[in-house]
């Protein structure tokens, strides 16, 4: 089963073509790693899936991406609604300029999400009131991101005061709070120390039961550790995509083999 289907996707920045005619189906509820050397189009592929590429004026997108049967590049698509379904975790966490609590409450607030119907609060709101409902909601997602215990005593201090590893998990909580179905992550651990990186990886493994997680990495070992499915890009071409087992043990393409063994990087 696949909810994301990419059809003949070509993307260029000005005259520079970054992705060349990529077609593939992305499996559901797994961790998918997009790997390849620097500048091969990994991040571009990722950002094309929630139209974050739109922010760049020079970008030209050809082809189609279907999510649940709907082409997200149709002109009449509601980009805001799309981004609520397809969350994005950036490479560097940029906490919104507000408190830890408000960082998590921000998404539901702007979407006018009825938090009483969410699994985090589930009907408890009648007894406890709206404020307590939101508090439980924030607690739920901070816990899900593995951050709650570290911040529960200073929820209302500025998010910028957290360590970078904590900020990245806050960014994860922020993404989860809008209840997306798909999470895109752009080298989510590259800016982190090994311990924080491990924490984020652990959360990913827990989260894949409920979410499809697509992450970009240039660390082969990380892809091996985490991913169920691998997409390998090289210089803008989709070289090979397969389950992790098959990809690493019996690569079909010569370039894949060379990349895995470290002959090319």
């Amino acid at each position: 089963m696949s909810r994301i289907k990419i059809k003949q996707l070509s993307i260029s920045y000005g005259n520079h073509q970054v992705l060349k005619n990529v077609s593939l189906d992305i499996p559901d509820r797994q961790i998918i790693a997009v790997i390849g050397p620097s500048g091969c189009g990994k991040t571009t592929l990722l950002k094309s899936m929630n139209r974050l590429l739109d922010l760049n004026e020079d970008v030209a997108v050809k082809g189609e991406i279907f999510i649940d049967g709907e082409n997200i590049y149709r002109p009449d698509i509601d980009v805001t609604a799309l981004r609520k379904r397809v969350g994005f975790l950036p490479q560097h966490p940029y906490p919104l300029p507000m408190s830890i609590f408000d960082n998590v409450a921000f998404g539901p607030k702007i979407h006018g999400l009825d938090i009483s119907s969410t699994p985090a609060v589930s009907g408890a709101q009648e007894e406890t009131g709206k404020k307590e409902g939101m508090r439980r909601f924030v607690e739920h997602y901070l816990s899900l991101a593995g951050l709650w215990d570290e911040v529960k005593d200073r929820l209302h201090s500025p998010a910028a005061k957290l360590s970078i590893g904590q900020q990245q998990r806050l960014a994860l909580a922020r993404v989860l709070s809008i209840e997306p179905e798909i999470i895109l992550a752009d080298e989510p651990t590259s800016a982190l120390d090994p311990i924080s990186a491990k924490l984020v990886e652990t959360q990913f493994k827990i989260l894949k039961q409920d979410y499809t997680i697509i992450f970009v990495t240039h660390i082969l070992r990380q892809a091996k550790r985490l991913a169920d499915y691998i997409i390998f890009l090289y210089m803008g071409d989709l070289v090979e995509h397969a389950t992790a087992g098959q990809f690493f043990s019996e690569p079909r393409d010569e370039k894949t083999r060379a990349y895995i063994t470290g002959e090319i990087s």
Binding site: L52, R83, Y94, L96, P97, G107
Partner: peptide, 11 residues
Amino acid sequence: PYRESALALGA
């Protein structure tokens, strides 16, 4: 990235 972060949340 601040714009990206907020827009990616569907703002």
